[in-house]
């Protein structure tokens, strides 16, 4: 994983609650055995007027001009602004793969579904929880004639808007550490392999039926 670097990006406002992972990447794309290439099919059913199929070239497909991703103001956006319970539904990691492949690095929402929230960190995406009032305000600004740009500082845990306003955010220290250094979390856990082996030995005594 690449280390998460500070950046300034355009905010794409997706004004919906309960956006589920099937809306983020529809099920037909789950048949892939790859981890990449999902970006062109991110939000496929909302983004295009026809139905996408895996392996198909997306460049000639009719676009839904009413959908935010197709709005020229938000071209190249790297920050997704949305509402409550983002990423609910299926646990498919294809959802953060698609978001990352498209170029989103940060998500701003009121709340997330648990599994999706974890999956984001595993893929170098920083999902931030902000107060509903802040989210409302950001929607108002992002919907203006000029796109809203935000500077993201992971080290300092702050977002800076174009007008100089600073919005602090929370992030779990372990998650922050892994993101900042682009760490392989499995490698981190394997540093404790002796503790794992010791646990297994205890467990073998306590619950031998799990080792039969």
């Amino acid at each position: 994983m690449q280390p998460f670097a500070n950046f300034t990006g355009v905010v794409c406002p997706l004004d919906r609650s309960n956006v589920d992972t099937d809306a983020i990447i529809p099920k037909q794309f789950l048949k892939s055995i790859q981890r990449s290439g999902f970006g062109p099919n991110l939000f496929d059913e909302w983004r295009y007027l026809d139905t996408g199929e895996p392996g198909r070239d997306n460049s000639g497909r009719p676009l839904n001009q009413g959908f935010v991703l197709n709005d020229p103001r938000y071209a190249g956006a790297s920050i997704l602004l949305t509402r409550a319970n983002f990423g609910c539904g299926s646990s498919r990691e294809h959802a953060p793969w698609a978001l990352a492949d498209y170029g989103f690095k940060v998500i701003l929402a009121e709340s997330y579904a648990d599994i999706f929230f974890n999956n984001c960190f595993e893929n170098g995406i920083l999902p931030l929880v902000l107060d509903p009032e802040v989210i409302d305000r950001l929607f108002a600004q992002a919907g203006g004639p000029d796109a809203l740009r935000i500077a993201v500082d992971l080290e300092g845990q702050a977002l800076t808007l174009g007008n100089g306003e600073v919005i602090p955010f929370e992030v779990h220290p372990y998650r922050k550490h892994c993101l900042q250094h682009g760490l392989d979390e499995i490698g981190q856990t394997l540093q404790h392999v002796e503790a794992i082996a010791a646990y297994e030995e205890r467990r073998r005594q306590q619950a031998p039926w799990l080792f039969a």
Binding site: S91, R92, E93, P96, I115, N118, N119, E122, N123, H172, Y174, E185, I186, Q188, T189, L190, H192, V193, I196, E200
Partner: peptide, 21 residues
């Protein structure tokens, strides 16, 4: 019993563990 993503599937395969809160 809980659902996990693919990175965590790999994590459990390799380590039998997950980092959880």
């Amino acid at each position: 019993a809980f659902g996990i993503g693919t990175s965590e599937v790999e994590h459990v395969l390799a380590t039998r563990c997950l980092v959880q809160r």
